[in-house]
Design a protein around this nucleic acid. Structure first.
Length: 385
DNA sequence: ACATGCTCCGATGCATGA
DNA sequence: TCATGCATCGGAGCATGT
């Protein structure tokens, strides 16, 4: 049992995976798996930041960067001053953020809905965007993909386009369009995982490859981290309830609100109950009964407590806050030992006073190892206590 | 022409091991 | 405490559909 995802990965791989490019620091010889790490290292260890002079002569990089805030790109103003300043004329209804295009607004909406419809078939981690999943697959599972056997149980079992993850539900947030096949993802896996490697079961302990796992699980089946505390709690907090402290530092909020950077979330906006209610109603409630038969092992028996018609991919209720975290509010999403790519559907199950009903879970779920959370961030693991 | 979807990329924060 | 890996996010380019 691996208590950390990278431990598992390091176990699975001997040395850097061939699919990963190594970035060598020519000054000290260090190697980095990612360009980011390399660049960070260069900046931190070798003063790489100073090697990039500011064309405008700002005394410091930070100061210079700040000077670009809300300014159009130089390419748009430098050559021709008559070019109108590009403005972000598309605003988000739920926050004060503005975007250049409507598609950006749409994509941004995931931040508010917290929807994570893109499920990693390898580790059951969920992503709100397809490209996030794609990147995750490439970065985190490239090696595993390389070890995947050529068998295509999914294709064999389902000649027609099989339900694949991610399940995309737009425009209807309620009806899951399980026919939506992630083109790039499945392309990647169909090429890299199924067609190129002859090993039958190359990873002892991971269990036999199962077709269902190749992206066939709809989001509802996975109870992964489909909602970040930051995007969920403080948005869905009923008025008057204490605000969930943001996962990221308060300074991040201030800083991120400046142009650039990953965490650009604006200060938590006051959400109307209507919006909160709408978000709750946007949670996916899918009847997964027909899919249960495909599962590789027995699942807990169907229970109406599991939601409207089966397992529910729904966000923890609004009452779920840091003050009273349910011991099982969908956060026990760790890939269980022999099935690192699958998660027991115990999350979001309405819990009685007794909490987990482990008796309904397969035996493996009751193992102590199951309680460990390797891939989950700390703040999720805390909820599993 | 415009809208939309997909994808790549860079920037940033968080988690975690050393 | 620092270095590193990874997730998250927005910007932007390209392809496709209407």
């Amino acid at each position: 049992m691996f208590h950390q995802q990278d431990h598992l990965k390091s176990q699975l791989q001997d040395g850097p995976p061939p699919s990963r490019q190594l970035f060598h620091c020519q000054e000290c010889g260090k190697q980095y798996n990612t360009q980011l790490g390399y660049r960070r290292h260069v900046v931190a260890a070798h003063g790489g930041g100073a090697a990039v002079p500011c064309p405008e002569g700002a005394p410091s990089l930070l100061e210079h960067l700040g000077s670009h805030i809300d300014r159009p790109p130089p390419s748009e103003v430098g050559a021709n001053a008559a070019v109108p300043v590009r403005e972000r004329k598309y605003s988000c209804e739920r926050c004060d953020r503005r975007f250049y295009t409507r598609k950006d607004v749409r994509r941004h909406a995931v931040v508010h809905t917290g929807r994570r419809d893109f499920l990693c078939p390898r580790c059951a981690q969920r992503f709100g965007r397809r490209d996030h999943l794609t990147r995750h697959l490439k970065k985190s599972h490239a090696q595993e993909a390389g070890l995947m056997p050529p068998c295509t149980p999914m294709a064999a079992a389902a000649p027609a386009p099989a339900p694949q993850c991610p399940v995309k539900e737009e425009p209807s947030p309620v009806n899951a369009d399980i026919s939506a096949v992630p083109k790039d993802t499945m392309d990647t896996y169909s090429r890299d995982m199924y067609n190129s490697y002859p090993m039958a079961n190359p990873v002892p302990g991971l269990g036999p490859p199962h077709g269902l796992m190749q992206g066939s699980l709809p989001p509802s089946m996975s109870v992964g981290r489909h909602m970040t505390p930051q995007s969920h709690h403080h948005h869905l907090q009923p008025p008057g309830t204490p605000q969930q402290p943001p996962r990221r530092s308060p300074t991040a909020t201030v800083k991120c609100w400046v142009k650039g950077g990953g965490q650009r979330r604006p200060p938590p906006a006051v959400r109307s109950p209507a919006i909160a209610s709408a978000e709750l109603s946007c949670t996916t409630n899918m009847d997964l009964g027909p899919l249960l038969g495909f599962l590789p092992f027995s699942l807990p028996p169907y229970s109406p407590h599991m939601g409207m018609g089966g397992l529910v991919m729904s966000y923890p209720p609004a009452t779920t806050s840091s003050s009273s975290p349910s011991p099982s509010t969908g956060l026990s999403s760790q890939p269980p030992g022999p099935f690192p790519f699958f998660q027991p559907p115990q999350a979001h199950v309405a819990q009685g006073p007794g909490g987990h009903n482990h008796s309904q879970l397969p035996q493996s779920y009751n193992s102590p190892a199951m309680s460990s959370s390797s891939a989950l961030p700390h703040y999720y693991q805390a909820f599993q206590q």
